[in-house]
Every structure is written in structure tokens, then in C-alpha cells.
Amino acid sequence: MKTELRSAPVRPGAASGTRPRPRVPSRFVPVLATFALFLATFGAGSLRYEGFASGQVVANLFIDNTFLIVLAVGMTFVILTGGIDLSVGSVVALSTMVTASGLQAGWPVPVVILAVLALGSVFGLLMGLVIHYFDIQPFIVTLAGMFLARGLCFVIDVESISIKNETFRDLATGIIELPGGVSITYGVVVALLVVAVAVYVLHQTRFGRTVYAVGGSESSAMLMGLSTARVKVGVYAISGFCSALGGLLFALYMLSGYGLHAVGMELQAIAAVVVGGTLLTGGAGYVLGSVIGVLMLGTIQTIISFEGTLSSWWTMIVVGVLLLVFIVMQRAILRRQARH
């Protein structure tokens, strides 16, 4: 495709107004595809099962996946820069462990929450520093982080610790009534808040735009004088923070801390992000896409539970196949772009 170039300079600011509106820009295609797929899946579910298309089923999609939404948001930051964070599932487990043992030890709830969030952020920050300053592949560093966090869980306790703190339980069971007889938990509000903040940061701040720039071309971003180091380290700190917050939400959901919580959740988060249209090579994607990706995974799970005869492992298979389809699609798009 070739853009027409006019020789005569145009009035300032008129450029955007005078041209015909382009069709859907290609960068939105993957997200829209996911959204369409989500609607189709959900629609198919509604046609097939009675009571599927209720407001509460939609609300439950959020309620059952608050932690995954938050994780996917953090993961989106990391993947947008072209990195990956394998430690998130383990950090979730560690956070539930710290929460449960902290509460057991009688710490006040706000202190526990702050401690967990700080722990997660510092954990992510350290990984980011190692990745950037020692130039070691994110894959291997976060793999070490994954081992470490998982192992630290068991250092705290090998067994599961249930959470009996009243305040925490109230937070967990608290419900917000929405019109239409639909109710959601506080966790949903937190998750949506995180999404909103992430959208703001990614699109309205210099940090966020630099995240995209680094993912597009790190060397270019550096030559453009952007603070790539801050961004490359920062995204891991953000992911660590999101993992810790996800861990808190998971603790609310499970009301226990356990070293074997959230095994493989990093894979779910990565899958959600990729299915949500974010390029694994970085530079393109949207937080909202990742949210849709999570909802997509949730819908599949809901359908499988509605189906009854289908077993839960179908979820993994379907998710894997979806992942494959999106990866191959991305590859095809990249190849076509390269041919331009």
C-alpha cells in the first residue's frame, strides 16, 4: 500500500480531517477478532444452554477470574516490551502464603496487603534489574523467579493455611448489588480499577508509550532518546505488583494460602494475553484485549461446566488450540508486513 503524497503543503492540522477515514486499522484486527470470537462463543453457549445468557453468568465470568484479569494486565505490559514473565503463578502462590500466614500471625489486614504488594513489586523489580543490566533472557530469569517464589512458599509452610481473619472474610464475601439482580464481589471492582489504570498508563503517559516503542524496536527507542532502561525494568515491577495483587484476590477467592495454588497460572495469563491479540514479539496489543482474552478462557470453562459431560481438561486443549491459531495468525500477519 502506498500513501499518496501531495506536493502542495496543506493547512496545518487539516491533514486528519481532509482524508477519508480509513477502514478498521490493522492493529485493531486481532483484538476485534478475539472480541468477535468471544461474542460467538458466548452466543453459542446462550443458544445451547438455558440460563447461560444471564447477567449473573457474565458477572461470574469476572468474579471467577479477577486474579487472572489482574495477572493478564501485568503480563500485557511485559509482553508488550517483548519480554515474558513466567513467575506470576508462583508469585500469586507466594502472596496467598504471605497473606494467610500474616493474618494467622495476627497482622492487621491493611499491613498484610501493603506487605504483599511491596513484596511482589520488589520481586518483579529485582528480576527486571537482572534482565536489563545483566542482559540475561527474561525467560530464564523469570524461570528462576518462578522456582524461587514457589520454593519460598514451602519455606513458610508446606501445608495449606486457611484464612480465618474476620475482616478478610468480610472482604471476600462482601457483595455489591447491581441493577438487574446481578451481584459482584469487591475483587471485581479492584480488577476493573487495575484495568482502567493500566489503560491510562499505557496510552496516556510517556512511560506507556515507551513500553510500545521498546516493543516495536528497542534500538530505535534508544536512539530516539527514550528511557528504555526504566521501562524494561519497570514492566517487571508492574507485573510483580499485579501478581501480588492477583495473589491477594486469589486469597480472597480461595480463603487460604497454599504453595500449590495457581500452578500453571502463568500459562493461562500468557494465553489470555496472546489470545487477546497482543504480539508475543512485543509492540502491539491492548490491555482490553487481554481482558477479553481472560473472559474468553472463562467462557470456555463455563461452557464446559454447563455441558457437564465434557471434562475439565478440554479447557486446556481448547485454550492451546486457540493459542496456536492466534500465534499462527500473528506469524502470518508479520510475514505479510515484512513483504511490504
Partner: peptide, 15 residues
Amino acid sequence: NLCTNLTVAENILLG
């Protein structure tokens, strides 16, 4: 040495 994944305006003014 620009980022092809960003808009023209961003590439001009990034930073």
C-alpha cells in the same frame, strides 16, 4: 530508526 508499530505523530514527538 523509528518504531513502525506507533503512529506517525508519536514517532515524531515521542520523548
